[in-house]
């Protein structure tokens, strides 16, 4: 799975927020190398800085020290080569599904004809099976559908890295299962480097190649990296029937319980 190549190279990154009395030392010495087309999940307790790591790779915030390199170029700001799927989908409520995805498409293909861009947008909308709802506004579709559009928008720029911040966290358990299946299907057909944050241990095992366990903040760091090593393509049955599954799950849950004791009440 891990080819050893450093597609995403997070190196000695520290992040401090604020100053004086309101200073918060969020991340300390984060080192992580992700190979191209690898699917990595970040797990940890709330407030441990997972989103901060994601935002640093996205370029939405800058590290206090250390650096991040994506595809041999340093990250200096946000860009469409690192697409983000937010937990709260953040679709613009005054644009319909097609227009929301078009935002991304117009960014990548500013010089192409409108027909070309509409066609591109349709392609990604159909990829997430939202073709029937193409003219609907976000208020007219369900949470799972909104997240699918968010994923379509993220894929529409053909990003080098796909960053997902608990994309299915706000969905009910049934929808979440569907969405994980769909994401895996899409990813199998169009493999990107993915960094995803999740709270769901089963989701992490099902989807990822490696699971990064973070310690608690402040001064959070990477405590452990677990190789999932389950063969692909995966289905839910093959995953839960696999001999490694139970031990993997135990390892993760034990880690979360141990670190949970140190989280202030």
């Amino acid at each position: 799975m891990t080819t050893g190549k450093k597609f995403v190279d997070i190196s000695q990154v520290h992040k401090v927020f604020g100053s004086g009395t309101s200073r918060y030392y969020a991340l300390a010495d984060i080192n992580l190398k992700i190979a191209e087309r690898e699917f990595v999940t970040l797990i940890g307790h709330s407030g441990c800085g997972k989103s901060t790591v994601l935002n640093l790779v996205a370029g939405l915030i800058k590290p206090s020290s250390g650096g991040i390199i994506v595809n041999e170029k340093e990250v200096v700001g946000p860009g469409m080569d690192r697409a983000v799927v937010f937990q709260s989908h953040s679709l613009l409520p005054w644009l319909n599904v097609e227009q929301n995805v078009r935002l991304a498409v117009d960014c990548v293909y500013p010089k192409e004809s409108k027909a070309f861009r509409i066609e591109k947008a349709r392609h990604y909308i159909n990829m997430v099976h939202m073709g029937a709802h193409i003219s609907k506004k976000p208020s007219e579709i369900s949470g799972g559908m909104k997240q699918r559009v968010g994923i379509a928008r993220a894929f529409a720029t053909d990003p080098m890295v796909l960053l997902m911040d608990e994309p299915f966290g706000a969905l009910d358990a049934l929808t979440r299962g569907n969405m994980q299946d769909e994401l895996l299907n899409i990813w199998e057909n169009d493999r990107k480097t993915v960094m995803m944050i999740t709270h769901d241990v089963d989701e992490a095992i099902f989807l990822s190649d490696r699971i990064v366990l973070m310690s608690n903040g402040p001064m959070a760091t990477i405590a452990k990296i677990v190789d999932v090593n389950l063969p692909r393509p995966r289905t839910r049955e093959t995953v839960i029937e696999h001999p490694r599954y139970i031990d993997l799950r135990k390892e993760l849950v034990h880690y979360l319980i141990e670190t949970g004791h140190h989280v202030a009440a």
Binding site: A58, P78, R82, S90, A104, C107, T157
Partner: peptide, 8 residues
Amino acid sequence: NVAKIYQL
């Protein structure tokens, strides 16, 4: 953030 990522 959406505006930043998609260069609006």
